[in-house]
């Protein structure tokens, strides 16, 4: 009988003491958390995509509350979230231009000539260990093993026929695919930019002709025809100056290789 009594007393007392110590400790060791931090955290998209450059939404919320980060970094939430965060923090909202991912390569399996038949692990980094950094003859080409597709949390990136394609309606511009691409092919472009050459091959035109059915050959036709001098050929490949482009789409029409993508259709 005494054993039972002792058991109850000892465990009860231990529990009570620990409870009291913890209750006291929570007062003594209380850390002030900025109430705005929680409000900001609530307003964020909560995808923990890391597009803001901070470790997760909590990290970004803490940085915003501390005044170390601007209000418009949440790319997944976009302008609506930026406005909410700005309201919580009581500062003017300077919404960031929405960015989307873009893959400047059109080298699908039936378009770009293969270098060898790759059958190793399904991982672009592994495929890059073999000669030429690509299983296609074009060393600039997308490998198409889907590291970007796996990195995308928004189902916006898909490898189709050996080349990654962005679903612009789903892309939030977090940049996870940009970091995941071992060849640094994927890049972020402003969503308002409707024209982009879908090739990054810097080889001379004759060489490109041999290895890809659509690759940019640097013929300069787009450069000559552009009314705004926005598109220029440098290193044998056409590039668009976003600040000058008037989005007319004329270059896409005149390109003999039809390699300039026009999203405004």
């Amino acid at each position: 009988m005494t054993t039972i009594l002792y058991s109850i007393l000892v465990l009860g007392a231990l529990g009570a003491i620990f409870g009291a110590v913890l209750a006291y400790a929570s007062k003594v060791f209380h850390v002030e958390v900025d109430p705005r931090q929680e409000a900001v955290r609530e307003a964020l998209a909560g995808a923990n995509c890391g597009g803001c450059g901070y470790p997760g939404c909590d990290g970004y919320a803490a940085a915003v509350a501390a005044g170390e980060a601007p209000c418009n970094k949440c790319v997944a939430g976009g302008a609506a979230t930026a406005a909410k965060v700005a309201e919580i923090m009581g500062v003017a909202n300077d919404a960031a231009e929405k960015m989307v991912a873009f893959v400047p390569c059109s080298g699908a399996h039936d378009i770009a000539e293969p270098r060898f038949n790759y059958s190793g692990p399904v991982d672009c980094r592994a495929a890059m260990l073999f000669g030429g950094k690509s299983s296609k003859l074009c060393t600039f080409a997308c490998i198409g093993l889907g590291n970007c597709e796996r990195a995308c949390q928004f189902d916006a990136m898909h490898v189709e026929n050996g080349v990654a394609k962005v679903d612009r309606s789903k892309c939030v511009g977090c940049g996870a695919c940009v970091d995941a691409c071992p060849k640094s092919i994927v890049k972020l472009i402003p969503e308002s930019q409707k024209i982009m050459p879908a090739c990054r091959n810097q080889d001379k035109g004759a060489q490109v002709m041999k290895i890809c059915k659509v690759g940019c050959i640097g013929c300069m036709k787009c450069q000559r025809e552009c009314p705004a001098d926005a598109i220029v050929v440098t290193n044998n490949v056409a590039t668009v100056d976003v600040s000058k482009c008037v989005q007319c789409g004329h270059c896409a029409d005149v390109c003999p290789r039809h390699i300039i993508e026009y999203f405004g259709k």
């Binding site: 000892v10 465990l11 529990g15 620990f18 913890l22 003594v28 060791f29 850390v31």
Partner: peptide
């Protein structure tokens, strides 16, 4: 076993609070 579980659970809580502050 019972008492140790109690001690460990309380200890981890306490250590967490202590570290967060100190």
């Amino acid at each position: 076993t019972l008492a140790f579980i109690l001690v460990i659970a309380a200890l981890v809580q306490f250590v967490e609070m202590f570290l967060k502050k100190m």
